[in-house]
Amino acid sequence: MAKAEIMTVIENTPLTKDTYRLRLKSDQPVQVRCGQFLNLKIPGKALRRPISVTSWKDDEIELTYRVVGEGTRILTQCRDTLDVINECGNGFDLTKFDKEVLLIGGGIGTAPLIACAEEALRQGLQVKVVFGYQNRSQTLFQEFFREKGIHAEYVYDEDGENVVTRIRDLGLEKMDFLACGPVRMMQAVDGIMEGYGQFSLETRMGCGFGACMGCSVRLKDRMARICKEGPVFEKGEIVWQNLL
């Protein structure tokens, strides 16, 4: 259930040249699910910015965002409180997985998969990870996987590799998976994976809670609002060309 609230900024610090960790504190226990997002009001900007949840504990939420334009640049300066709409979207459904899950992420799309890794571990699933970035300076979350004792494969465009080539090299095509990243990466992932999977999509949104229909896309058998029925959809539902 979407919830409007004012949250306190307790950390807003750079992780790499253009990605930041934003930790927010609520005045009540956080009830978010992995794959859901917060829609953040940015001072001086008309529209909110949807940012997916990296992790949460008790009354705190951690987000990871990349500076891509004016709005996220202003966000780097937010130190006090933020007006947020919490618990937006459907989130990933980990109950569909049995024994193991492969997390496939690209760029800032790796952020929501950290919440998935934690949830998967809570459910006793074995977690495998293939994360791709353009170059080493953009690398995120290596420390997280070290702490959890999860072996994570990191691939870089600068080496002429990507998540698809690595998945093939390792023969992981049959695994059930969760994926988030650039549309073309996810489209390529969809093309090689043979098992069950879920993809998290993004687009420009108006409201982020379903009222404006600004983010509706045609899926194979229905129209869906990325902010409300999504952002997570199952493999086989998505018509990739409608997202390009």
Partner: peptide, 30 residues
């Protein structure tokens, strides 16, 4: 929501963008 005789799927995304004092939409009467 703007209602038409027949169902409509509306325009392709992106349907939304903003300016400093508001937004633009081209939902296309979905």
């Amino acid at each position: 929501k703007g209602t038409t005789l027949d169902p409509r799927e509306g325009n392709q995304i992106p349907r939304i963008c903003e300016y400093d004092y508001g937004m633009l939409n081209s939902v296309g009467l979905q």
